[in-house]
Amino acid sequence: MTRLLYRQLGDGAVVFDTANWHTHILTPAAAVIFEVFAEAGNGDAIAESRALELLREELDVDPGSPEMQQVLRSLQEMGMLAG
């Protein structure tokens, strides 16, 4: 994801997408998830099934909750999720 510029600010973060010049604001929870997905993808997007697995097993969160759905939509917009 070299096209995404990530900057941590306190516990949260901001991301600039150099492809479309969109800026994304990440809450602390979203920032943690971004970092986990980025590490798992090693520079590439990860499959949605892998993303859900990471949320459940590594981060111990419910991917179905409205908050997580919102975070996933944001990460999808950024191209972090394949498919």
Partner: peptide, 28 residues
């Protein structure tokens, strides 16, 4: 929190959208 401060400053800037990565880095 930092991310809220960023949003308040950047999205009220006159030319944030115009300068793209330059303004992102400067505001951050």
């Amino acid at each position: 929190p930092g991310e809220e401060a960023f949003a308040r400053v950047a999205f009220n800037s006159f030319n944030y959208a115009l300068l793209g990565q330059i303004s992102f880095a400067a505001v951050a």
